[in-house]
C-alpha cells in the first residue's frame, strides 16, 4: 500500500522535536496525495517510539528488524530503509533535515539510486516541485523532483510540531542488513554536559567580535546562568579562539530556537543570522543602531554590551530578591 513514509530519527528511543515536525509536515503532504502517513523506526529503542509517533499521525509504524541493527549506524540504518522501501513502495519518503535525518535520507538515496532533495521549506501537493533552502536558509531554490519514489527532508523549524492522532499500529518487517555494515555503528559516547544545551536552551546569550576577549565572556556567562540559559557566539569569536566551536550559532555552527536570543555585539552577517532566525524573540544589544542584527531583531538596546550585560544581570538579581 502506498503511503508517505517518515523516517523516525531517534536516539535509543528518544524522538527529537525535529521528527515530530517532519510527521506534522507529512500529514499535510499525505492529505494532499490522499495517502496515509506511515513511519519507519529501527535500532536500539525503536520499540519505545510507537505511541508518540502514532500521536503525531502515523497509521502504521514499520519496525525494521535485523540482528545487525542496534545503536545508530548510518550505513546499516540506510540499508534497512532500502528494505522497507522495496517492500512498502511508498510514494514519498521523508525525514527532518537534521544531521541524522539528512544522513539517513542520503544513505537511502545512494543505495536506492534515487534523487534526494534536502531541506525543503515548501512542497507542492504532488511533491514534483518544491522550494528548498540553500546557504543555510539565506537563499531559496525552486526545484523539480522527477522520481517514482520521492525522497525529501524538511528544513528544521519549517512547521511547528502539532499532534494529530492516528492508529499507530506496529508492523514488524525483517530486513537484510549486511554484516559488513556493522563497521559504522556508534562505538562509544562522550557526555560533556548534562541538562540543557545550546539547541534546546530557552535563553541564549550570545557575543560577537565586540566582546573582545575570552575573559570578557564572563558577564555573558553570568547573565545566562541567571536566566537558565546558555552562552553562544558568532563565527568571528570561534575564529579568534575565544570560545569553543560548539558554542557557535550560525550556518556552520548550531541552529538555535530559544524563547529569546540575546545577541550582544553581533553585527548579524548572513551566516550568523540563518542560525539565529529560528529564535522566537530576538533582543539585540549593540552600539550601532544600523547593525543588521539590530534592524532584524524584535527588540534592541543601543548600548555598549560591556556595560549593558552586567546592568541586566543586576536588575534580574534585584527582582529575584
Amino acid at each position: 500500500m502506498s503511503a508517505v513514509l517518515v523516517v523516525i530519527e531517534h536516539d535509543r528511543g528518544h524522538v527529537p522535536e525535529a521528527t515530530l515536525e517532519a510527521l506534522t509536515s507529512a500529514r499535510s503532504i499525505a492529505g494532499g496525495l490522499g495517502l496515509p502517513v506511515h513511519a519507519a523506526a529501527m535500532g536500539e529503542g525503536a520499540e519505545m517510539v510507537a505511541s508518540q509517533v502514532g500521536e503525531y499521525g502515523a497509521e502504521v509504524i514499520h519496525h525494521l528488524t535485523s540482528p545487525n541493527l542496534g545503536d545508530y549506524n548510518p550505513e546499516a540504518w540506510g540499508q534497512a530503509l532500502v528494505g522497507c522501501v522495496s517492500s512498502e513502495s511508498p510514494a514519498v519518503v521523508m525525514a527532518s533535515g537534521t544531521d541524522r535525518g539528512n544522513e539517513l535520507m542520503a544513505q537511502l538515496a545512494a543505495r536506492a539510486g534515487l534523487p534526494f532533495v534536502a531541506n525543503c521549506v515548501d512542497v507542492a501537493p504532488d511533491v514534483s516541485s518544491m522550494t528548498r533552502s540553500q546557504w543555510g536558509g539565506a537563499l531559496h531554490e525552486e526545484a523539480t523532483l522527477d522520481a517514482e519514489i520521492k525522497l525529501i527532508s524538511m528544513a528544521p523549524h519549517t512547521v511547528e510540531a502539532s499532534p494529530g492522532p492516528a492508529a499507530g499500529r506496529v508492523d514488524e518487517i525483517a530486513v537484510d542488513v549486511d554484516d559488513s555494515l556493522v563497521r559504522s555503528v556508534i562505538r562509544d559516547r562522550v557526555v560533556l554536559s548534562e541538562g540543557i544545551t545550546l539547541s534546546t536552551a530557552p535563553v541564549v546569550v550570545s557575543g560577537g567580535r565586540a566582546v573582545g576577549s575570552e575573559e570578557a565572556f564572563a558577564p555573558l556567562e553570568a547573565l545566562a546562568e541567571e536566566l537558565g540559559g546558555k552562552v553562544g557566539c558568532s563565527r568571528a569569536v570561534t575564529n579568534n579562539g575565544w570560545r569553543p566551536h560548539a558554542d557557535q550559532v550560525g550556518q556552520t555552527g548550531t541552529r538555535i530556537a530559544p524563547t529569546i536570543y540575546i545577541a550582544t555585539g553581533i553585527s548579524g552577517a548572513t551566516q550568523h543570522w540563518v542560525g539565529a532566525m529560528g529564535s522566537k524573540n530576538i533582543l539585540a544589544i549593540n552600539t550601532d543602531p544600523e547593525a543588521n542584527m539590530v534592524t532584524k531583531a524584535g527588540w534592541a538596546v543601543i548600548a555598549d554590551l560591556h556595560e549593558m550585560v552586567p546592568a541586566i544581570t543586576e536588575e534580574v538579581k534585584r527582582r529575584k530578591g
Binding site: A112, P115, F116, Q134, L139, E141, E142, A143, D146, A147
Partner: peptide, 9 residues
C-alpha cells in the same frame, strides 16, 4: 531512477 533540477533561485 529520476533526478532533481533547479528551476530558479
Amino acid at each position: 531512477n529520476g533526478r532533481q533540477a533547479q528551476t530558479r533561485l
